[in-house]
């Protein structure tokens, strides 16, 4: 089962308003007529999180994390990838 927080891309302790706002953003990004499968995923995740009881249950008693250190490492590399590299650093990559 997919993690609804991950599907919506919101923090585990995000507020109801943040969750709703993020959901609407995603729906604009993936409308059902363009990507029905993705939309269904987003909708299911939102349905799960908008139920305050389900959300609170997860916040209080769930300790599984969809995040991982490997994912952090990937993100750091992505950050490096998108960074503008100073000339000196760039040329130093050629050093044996």
């Amino acid at each position: 089962m997919t993690d609804p927080y991950k599907t919506l891309g919101v923090a585990r302790h995000g507020t109801a308003a943040e969750i709703r706002s993020r959901y609407l953003d995603l729906v604009r990004q993936y409308p059902p007529e363009r990507d029905a499968e993705r939309f269904a995923e987003i909708r299911a995740a939102y349905d799960e999180l908008r139920d305050p009881t389900v959300r609170m249950q997860s916040l209080l008693f769930n300790f599984d994390s969809a995040d991982s250190i490997a994912e952090l490492a990937v993100e750091v590399k992505e950050r490096l990838r998108t960074a503008r590299i100073p000339t000196k650093t760039l040329l130093s990559l050629a050093k044996p």
Binding site: I69, A70, L72, A73, V76, K77, R79, L80, A83, I85, P86, K88, T89, S92, L93
Partner: peptide
């Protein structure tokens, strides 16, 4: 990667994470 991390992020973050 270590060179880029050092110059862009200030330290070998990926290595730490790994």
């Amino acid at each position: 990667v270590r060179i880029l991390e050092k110059d862009i992020l200030g330290g070998p973050i990926v290595w730490y994470l790994e």
